[in-house]
Design a protein around this nucleic acid. Structure first.
Lengths: 135, 135
DNA sequence: CTTGACCTTCCAGTACAGGGCAAGGTCAAG
DNA sequence: CTTGACCTTGCCCTGTACTGGAAGGTCAAG
């Protein structure tokens, strides 16, 4: 038997491309299980923490919130495969993205129109009461 | 000469379609000049406040922050026409919107791909260590 | 022995635009 | 006289994902 490889928080953070602050934050937020501690009180993570951190990072790149990621992790930690939940999550995320994109495109149209109007700015014809006719 | 029409905060808020809280907040944030007070200490706005509130609302619908709106108002209050500034503002806002939209579209592509992958979910083939292969 | 790189906890703050509630003053109507 | 609608100030709370700093413990190297 070999001794198991463990990592301290700084090493884990560096390997995952994040910060020690973030790892402690994830722990407080329930995304990481409280690790063992060394006799000095240092967090002592098993090497598997790295794939978990990688999962968190992949999920974040998909625009998922930490709360959503935590749910997936909880299902997995409960022993079940989170596939179904993940699929729902992605479906909702997609709908959300579509709504956001639609909203932004509409706003872009509005702002483009305002901008075009302002291009022909004639301060003389402005009603001071209206503050600015171009908005 | 007639007495000038004035409005109290509740009336102004209702007319502008916002809340008394928001009006006090705008005042603290420098978007509204501190109004006269009645003998009881009530804010007593001139009727012109309504066009200012309307301007604020129009600007917010264009997605401008209160800080940006305040700048425009300050220029106008300084006696100048804010046209040039407004045009810059809209140019920047447009560039910002384009960047946001581009980012969201890229994210949408990513999420769509993940979602398509997850549609063929086969929990058996998952590596428990990876938490979920579909993310 | 000391320095420096780690690690610990806790507190505070970031940006945004207010919302919620408390505790109390004011005013017209019944 | 009292009720109810309105107003005042002040203070904390929301959500997001952390980051910064203070104050101090631990450990290997020089």
């Amino acid at each position: 038997m070999e001794g198991e490889t463990t990592v301290r928080i700084g090493e884990a953070a560096a390997a995952a491309g994040t910060s020690t602050k973030a790892l402690r934050f994830y722990e407080a937020a329930g995304l990481l299980p409280p690790p063992e501690r060394t006799s000095a009180g240092y967090r002592d993570y098993p090497a598997e923490i790295l794939s978990r951190l990688d999962f968190i990072r992949r999920s974040q790149r998909a625009g998922l919130t930490l709360a959503a990621i935590r749910e997936v992790l909880e299902i997995r930690d409960g022993g079940a495969a989170p596939c179904g939940h993940v699929q729902q999550l992605l479906t909702r995320r997609l709908a959300d993205l579509d709504r956001q994109i639609t909203d932004l495109l509409a706003l872009r149209t509005t702002v483009t129109e305002l901008h075009a109007g302002a291009a022909t700015a004639e301060p003389e014809t402005c009603d001071p009461d209206a503050v600015c006719r171009y908005l």
